[in-house]
């Protein structure tokens, strides 16, 4: 049985008229996110992705509708909104720009300290998350400003993980990183989920990344929820996705096109190994007959 951890009902957000800030509202979004999923959130810029995730931890208050965390309305008691933020941790785009402490240790401890945890518990968490993000404890005494770009990014992510949120949301965690850095961050996200069993939401522009790590995909389009389904379920809608300014993963595209030409191939292909196996079956199988 799957347990719903985060749910929105008819969530609508309208930005106050007359302001110059960009319009990035959301309309009537109802979605149920189950415990332990790794949800990829996709949508073109301005589709409402950022607005949506900021509702999950109460940084934005919806104009109408509700957000339920573990069955409870997050706005039921306004004073407890900070507790919601500890349970739903958001790591924003370019999180290295939030680093401010003298040492990596202190910076990671900032969230747990705000939670008023004991020093021992903070220490345990800091040491745990630094290993989650693949850095050793010698980093803890370094200044975050002396690290490389990729390391800063990982420390910043660790700072959010240290709050041990039941839902971890990462907005474009790989933006601006080189291929190696991207791979490291993606693998630390998947291993974090495996180790902790937490629910993880990842906003990304890369369909390839999403198809490889996610269990479910949420698609936003023009402020509305377009799809919330399994990876296979979403990426079969290639033409609809294309109309939304999105794409399907490259390999999936190859198999979709083969199928269009009348060949009997599966289309839920996201990895090179599977692609290779399927193509070999197709090419060699033909010669056997």
């Amino acid at each position: 049985m799957s347990v719903t951890v985060l749910e929105t009902k008819n969530l609508t957000h309208v930005y106050s008229k007359g302001t110059t800030s960009q319009v990035d509202a959301i309309r009537d979004v109802s979605v149920k996110i189950e415990q332990g999923e790794l949800v990829g959130i996709i949508g073109h810029t301005g589709s409402g992705k950022s607005t949506l995730i900021q509702h999950f931890n109460g940084l934005l208050k919806c104009t109408s509708g509700t957000v339920l965390l573990e069955g409870k309305d997050i706005w039921q008691n306004k004073k407890n909104i900070r507790d919601v933020r500890f349970k739903v941790g958001i790591c924003f785009q370019y999180p290295e720009y939030q680093l401010f402490e003298e040492t990596v240790y202190k910076d990671i401890a900032y969230g747990p300290k705000n939670m008023k945890l004991s020093d021992e518990e903070i220490d345990r968490r800091v040491r745990q998350v630094i290993s989650f993000v693949g850095l050793d404890e010698s980093y803890l005494e370094k200044s975050p400003f002396d690290l490389s770009g990729g390391e800063k990014r990982r420390v910043a992510i660790a700072g959010v993980m240290a709050m041990e949120p039941s839902v971890l949301i990462l907005d474009e965690p790989c933006a601006g990183l080189d291929p190696k850095g991207r791979e490291t961050v993606l693998s630390l996200i998947t291993s974090y989920r495996e180790k902790t069993g937490s629910t993880v939401l990842v906003v990304s522009h890369s369909m390839e990344d999403i198809s490889k790590i996610a269990t479910k995909v949420l698609v936003m389009n023009n402020s509305e929820l377009a799809y919330y389904d399994t990876v296979d379920g979403v990426f079969t809608h290639s033409s609809e996705l294309y109309d939304m300014g999105l794409n399907v993963p490259q390999l999936t595209m190859l198999f979709l096109k083969l199928r269009e030409k009348g060949y009997d191939v599966p289309v839920n292909v996201y990895t090179l190994d599977k692609a290779k196996a399927e193509l070999e079956k197709l090419l060699k199988g033909g010669s056997d007959e």
Binding site: Q54, N57, L59, R82, R85, F86, G89, I90, C91, F92, P95, Y97, Q98, Y110, G111, N114, M115, G159, V160, M163
Partner: peptide, 16 residues
């Protein structure tokens, strides 16, 4: 813009 972005990021880490 930058101030708003950083403020949000720190709020998400429980800044009050």
């Amino acid at each position: 813009e930058e101030i708003e972005r950083i403020t949000n990021a720190q709020k998400a880490r429980g800044a009050d």
